[in-house]
Design a protein around this nucleic acid. Structure first.
Lengths: 216, 216
DNA sequence: TGACCGACCTGACAGTGTCAGGCTAGAGGA
DNA sequence: TCCTCTAGCCTGACACTGTCAGGTCGGTCA
């Protein structure tokens, strides 16, 4: 028996992926679908296996346990976030404060568009970064982008007090908090006239206000 | 059988609570212990029942399902947070900016001292506020305290731009983000010289910088 | 030809939340 | 005194989960 339909790849390209794709990749994509549909609670190894039409044990050939699959998903999220960062960084406008604002907006957009995956990236109770060096490295790289942006503001002499790495902590806290609260629906009931773009504008505008020298 | 040792209450007051206490209260306390010891993942209805020395079904007499128990725990958390807010509010110093800073510090202290319960208070995937009006009301009350504090700053003419409720969203985001990132261990690796009190000082100082008029 | 191995599979186990249906002590009315 | 009712538990089952143990099968390589 097994995966009996290799090399067939006939008419059904419409759904999911073609059958001969790496099972590992297919499992990751299916897991992402499940998270997007029903949140982290809807993600079980067996559910992933079912949707991928393999046995409930097949995923364990590629991932030692549940946490390893989640770690791979989490790392993928950080890499995509970093890619988003790079996209908005390579802007011809080189004002460091605007750059920080664009990074903040990109962060929030990523979090709001991929709420399930974003949540997973910070659920250390289910994925311990210490056990997954590649994940820890990706997360560190994302944070470093923020630190670099603040350092550039400092170098331009426009930072009001504080060390760049410490101010980065506060800035990261602000965007992470806004993203988390919005995802959890905690903000929608408080400021009803606020939509996603409004939230992004509100938060990013205060990011520079928080650290810029000589702000009115 | 059942709870066979009512009205005894002899020598064993040292551990947990006396045996004739409300089972409902005992379940909540045991649940809190489990969360404190092993996080939310360690909290199962059956584990609570085991530690409370009752059958696995006894909790369902008081809580319709798992979510109801978690909702009660979450609501208790918000009420304790509100109590902390009131404690630091009734200070003879009536500078509204200092008051906001004290609120922020109280928020962070609560989150850092009760990480499991705090996490639960914002896990809407496990506890939907819409299904638990008392919980939603407690959460709204806590947020309102922040809004009131910002409104007082506005009334004193010391707010730089923005509506109080919108600025409250940003401030809440900042403290919530800092608390969440610290709890998840995401900050410890980035700014190693930072301890809990350092984080509180760092964040609260930037809260006023974010909104105060005429800040240097 | 035979040993090996990667890529799956089936079958079991303990743990979980939850449904269904007990049991028992006490209260309230006849 | 007897009967009924109910609150406050209980036992037993179910489907679901992650995970351990041990197949099977096609290909590779000596």
């Amino acid at each position: 028996m097994g995966a009996s339909l290799d090399s067939v790849k006939s008419g059904t390209e419409t759904e999911e992926m073609s059958a001969d794709t790496d099972l590992r990749e297919r499992l990751l994509q299916v897991a992402l679908e499940l998270i997007a549909e029903g949140g982290l609670a809807a993600l079980s190894i067996r559910a992933v296996a079912r949707r991928a039409s393999v046995s409930h044990q097949a995923p364990y050939h590629y991932f030692a346990d549940r946490e390893q699959l989640l770690a791979a998903l989490s790392e993928q999220g950080f890499r995509r976030l970093i890619a988003d960062f790079e996209r908005v960084s390579s802007h011809d406008d080189d004002d460091p404060l605007r750059r920080l604002e664009r990074l903040g907006a990109a962060y929030l957009r990523f979090a709001l568009r991929h709420p399930g995956q974003y949540a997973l990236m910070f659920r250390r109770d289910v994925v311990d970064h210490h056990r997954h060096p590649a994940l820890a490295e990706a997360g560190g790289c994302a944070f470093q982008t923020l630190v670099d942006a603040v350092t550039a503001i400092h170098a331009a002499g426009r930072l009001r007090g504080g060390a760049p790495d410490q101010l980065s902590v506060v800035i990261w806290s602000t965007v992470h908090g806004a993203a988390s609260l919005w995802r959890d629906g905690a903000l929608q009931t408080k400021a009803e006239e606020l939509d996603e773009e409004g939230l992004i504008a509100l938060v990013t505008s205060r990011l520079s206000a928080m650290i810029e020298k000589g702000n009115p």
